[in-house]
């Protein structure tokens, strides 16, 4: 856990979705979408969150903003316990935490003009009305690279990249200090994607923003993130500085994930670790280490005991029984008392 720079500290966060069946809607099972996740994000820092579909990264992003109510755990934002906030206090907190969604088509209301989409929050929070609100929206549009004369247009009049810029402007409207970017560039074409990534980087510098950048494209995540957390079946299995993670992946899942990325260089020959099978269902995750059925290094202990968190120095942590043996015993915190 780092020092005073923390903007967001998440401890042992859980989000379980109950599966109900029968006449009395008895809970028959739980989908453990996010299971005991702990991490922190410093001021001005970008934490990349990667993992395959269904690993819980989107649920985690939404649970932090309480768009989905977490089942258990702690979220401290700028020293404030977010989960204890109610009503008006939570609404005030939301001014500081915003989200950009993946799909620029479904995340904008087709019946609202850009003025209303971007300016809605200004109205709701009583920050600006009328002319003042319009001026502020125009400024925001200019800032994200759209002409201010577009203010009265509707979403269908824009291309995918432009719509995503509208989504960015909406997130910026309340001067937040933290933005969850949930696959914010995934739906865009390569040349447009680069424009939006550059915009996000510029805004980070200009407004001192912190991002939780959720994406499945590892090259994009490496480009934009200071640190990266790798998720598998609801748990964070490895966290490290972004170059450190790519140069020295310690968890076998991270290693397999990185080796699976196709590289735009036909002369490069490399060994690829092809994982067998799919991500198992989070309803009944494998015992012990969730990754053991697909792991090339699997041993007997892996299916019996959940691995603790091993500290590999420089903020690089991972959870693997086998790799942990390369490190001194005291580097590993067993799972029962695992602190973030």
């Amino acid at each position: 856990m780092s020092g005073n720079g923390d903007l967001l500290v998440v401890r042992n966060l859980k989000k379980y979705f109950p599966i109900r069946k029968g006449v009395f809607s008895r809970v028959v099972a739980q989908v453990k979408a996010v299971d005991n996740v702990s991490f922190h994000i410093d001021r001005g820092e970008t934490l990349g969150l990667v993992g395959e579909s269904g690993c819980g990264k989107t649920t985690l992003g939404r649970a932090i903003l309480r768009l989905i109510e977490p089942s258990a755990g702690e979220i401290a934002f700028d020293g404030v316990d977010v989960l204890s906030l109610k009503g008006a206090a939570m609404r005030r907190m939301r001014r500081r935490m915003q989200i950009i969604f993946q799909d620029p088509y479904s995340s904008l209301n087709p019946r609202m003009t850009v003025l209303d989409i971007v300016g809605e929050a200004l109205h709701v929070h009583g920050i600006a009305r009328g002319r003042e609100r319009e001026e502020r929206v125009k400024q925001l549009l200019e800032r994200v690279g759209l002409a201010s004369r577009y203010v009265n247009r509707y979403p269908h009049e824009f291309s995918g990249g432009q719509r995503q810029r509208i989504g960015v402007a909406r997130a910026l409207a309340l001067n937040p200090s933290f933005i969850v970017a949930d696959e914010a560039v995934s739906a865009l074409d390569v040349s447009i994607q680069a424009q939006v990534i550059n915009l996000l980087v510029d805004l980070r510098e200009e407004f001192g923003l912190s991002y939780l950048f959720i994406a499945h494209d590892l090259s994009v995540v490496r480009h934009i993130s200071d640190r990266i957390a790798v998720m598998y079946l609801g748990e964070i299995v490895e966290t490290a500085g972004s170059d450190d993670l790519f140069d020295r992946p310690l968890h076998p899942y991270t290693e397999a994930l990185l080796s699976a990325v196709p590289v735009a260089d036909p002369t490069r020959e490399r060994a690829r670790i092809v994982l067998t099978g799919d991500v198992p269902t989070p309803i009944d995750p494998p015992s012990g280490c969730h990754f053991h059925p697909r792991c090339p290094l699997v041993e007997k202990i892996c299916s019996e005991v959940p691995p603790g968190v091993t500290d590999a120095q420089n903020g690089h942590t991972f959870r693997c029984h086998v790799v942990a043996r390369q490190f001194p015993d005291e580097a590993t915190t067993p799972v029962e008392s695992a602190a973030p």
Binding site: S159, G161, V190, S191, A194, I197, N198, S219, D243, A264
Partner: peptide, 24 residues
Amino acid sequence: RGLFRSIPAITGGHDRLQTIEGTV
């Protein structure tokens, strides 16, 4: 050439991405 320059390299580097201005 523009396409190649607008993809971030998996091998690292945090330099500003070059973009192709405008849209299709």
